[in-house]
């Protein structure tokens, strides 16, 4: 039950993009088409799930016993960078078109602060291995939900001509993102 709450909490209540405001770069960069947004969401989900587990292990089995906790940032980045490389290889092999569509944002998952964020939150909240995994997957699915919803709205905005000239493109997208964040505030009372 606790795990389910943690999962929903990470996905909706503390949504990485819309509540914690982490991972805004791909949220704005890869949200022009629902298709690529889904691809990005999958890639981030994979990286975040694995990153939560591996960073947890690295922290518990290496950094804490060696009293090197202060090295967590560099160690976590190392884990994430390697994982992103792996994901890049897998996607290039399995889906060249998705690989082309994601373009530079694929290697940029490395610097997606949602991924580092999940690892650091796992450490600070002292989650167990299972909790870390659930938190990572939940958070990543939250990211996917946010980016796919946002991409759907942006696709519609693209064909709407009633938008004032000054707001076309990114400005209206940012305003939309703000409204979405406000809407996600509604989940605050979900888990008391």
């Amino acid at each position: 039950m606790d795990l389910l709450l943690l999962f929903l909490g990470a996905m909706l209540v503390n949504n990485f993009v819309l509540t914690r405001f982490l991972g805004i770069c791909p949220f704005l960069g890869v949200s022009k088409k629902v298709e690529t947004a889904v691809g990005m969401g999958m890639a981030v989900t994979f990286v975040m799930a694995l990153a939560s587990v591996i960073t947890h292990l690295v922290h518990k089995l290496l950094l804490v016993p060696a009293k090197l906790e202060y090295l967590y940032t560099i160690a976590f980045i190392l884990v994430i960078a390697s994982l992103v490389q792996l994901v890049e290889m897998v996607i290039q092999k399995s889906s060249p078109s998705l690989y082309a569509a994601l373009g530079v944002f694929l290697p940029l998952i490395t610097t997606n602060c949602a991924v580092l964020g999940v690892a650091i939150i796992n450490m600070q909240e002292e989650y167990t291995l299972m909790e870390s995994l659930v938190h990572g997957v939940g958070g990543a699915l939250g990211f996917t939900i946010a980016i796919v919803l946002f991409a759907g709205i942006r696709e519609r905005l693209d064909t709407n001509i009633n938008i004032p000239e000054a707001l076309k493109g990114l400005p209206i997208a940012l305003i939309t993102a703000g409204f979405m964040a406000t809407a996600f505030l509604g989940f605050q009372g979900l888990i008391s």
């Binding site: 290496l62 060696a66 090197l68 090295l71 792996l86 290889m89």
Partner: peptide, 26 residues
């Protein structure tokens, strides 16, 4: 110690990636 720990980590991941690169080679 920290230098050894981080390089060790790097080596392990590097080896993992090298293995993956062979497996997923396009």
């Amino acid at each position: 110690y920290p230098a050894a720990a981080i390089s060790g980590l790097g080596l392990v991941f590097g080896a993992g990636l090298g293995f993956a690169a062979q497996k997923f080679a396009v």
